[in-house]
């Protein structure tokens, strides 16, 4: 176990260096802040064009917080998968990592951990920007901390686990990893009630939404972070009939299910990649 923890720590340190040491700390901090804030401001201006005086509304807060939390889905999912692609095709070090006496799972999770840490800073800054500059309806006094923390941990675990499956698939594909990643994240963006309630979608799409764990994660996170907004929107969210225990149960069961599925997919892809000699395969990225 100590060896695995050492692998995790060193992989996280390597990930941090790869993320940040291409520039000086000031530029890196600027880069880390500007990108998420700009992405959020696109939605803010879309909203303001239609409702010029309307940021202090439940609808705006729903959209803003959902978009901030979605950064975890996009960045962490992408980060986990990108480890395989980057190490294999760009730095050509995947082979060395493979033959080292370490657990590859802990290596990937270490690399993902630093992605979660960096994304957390972006999410936190975006939410603070929303609260102080745009009257987003989040109040420290009304936050349900147990629900928020448990949902966050479960959701991040589920996203990392999904990333593991996608990383396995990227072993076998030529430059498809990014497209598959963005496609999966994009489906979540449209169907999981990220920037609008799922009731806006056509009925057939709402049925798909209710099969996606991210839909439940978004709802649970919002109930923890902005319970007033969820109460105000009522049945508009399409999830009002579900209590918090049900949301937690869905999250726990889906995380366990994805754990088995993802490890299975990863092991299968790993086996095929070894048999076909794709561990050190390059496709001129």
């Amino acid at each position: 176990m100590r060896g695995n923890l050492r692998t995790f720590k060193n992989a996280a340190w390597l990930g941090w260096q790869m993320e940040s040491n291409w520039t000086d700390p000031f530029l890196f901090a600027t880069y880390s802040i500007v990108k998420p804030i700009a992405g959020t401001l696109i939605l803010v201006f879309m909203y303001l064009v239609i409702a010029p005086h309307g940021t202090n509304t439940p609808g705006f807060s729903y959209m803003f917080i959902g978009n901030a939390l979605y950064m975890y889905v996009a960045e962490v999912l992408f980060g986990v998968t990108w480890v395989i692609h980057d190490d294999r095709e760009h730095y050509m070090t995947l082979k060395q990592v493979y033959i080292a006496p370490i657990s590859f799972y802990f290596y990937i999770m270490g690399r993902a951990a630093i992605k979660i840490a960096i994304t957390s800073v972006g999410v936190l800054l975006t939410i603070l920007f929303g609260i102080f500059a745009l009257d987003v309806q989040v109040s420290l006094a009304s936050i349900s901390w147990p629900l928020l923390v448990i949902s966050l941990v479960l959701g991040l675990a589920a996203i990392c686990i999904m990333g593991l499956a996608l990383g396995g698939i990227s072993f076998l594909t030529a430059k498809h990893g990014q497209g598959i990643n963005e496609g999966v994240a994009g489906v979540f963006y449209v169907l999981s009630g990220v920037i609008f309630p799922i009731t806006v979608l056509p009925p057939w799409a709402q049925s798909i939404s209710k099969l996606l764990p991210i839909t439940y994660w978004m709802e649970a996170m919002r109930r923890g972070l902005e319970p007033g907004v969820i109460s105000a929107l009522g049945s508009t969210t399409g999830m009002s009939g579900m209590d918090n225990w049900f949301l937690m149960l869905v999250l726990i069961l889906s995380t366990i299910a994805f754990l088995f599925i993802s490890v299975g997919v990863f092991r299968f892809a790993d086996k095929v990649a070894r048999m076909k000699g794709k561990i050190d395969w390059t496709t001129a990225y």
Binding site: M46, Y47, G59, F196, V200, L201
Partner: peptide, 10 residues
């Protein structure tokens, strides 16, 4: 699609 539905929402 996401932005279209956002505009529909508002």
């Amino acid at each position: 699609a996401a932005y279209v539905y956002l505009y529909k929402f508002i």
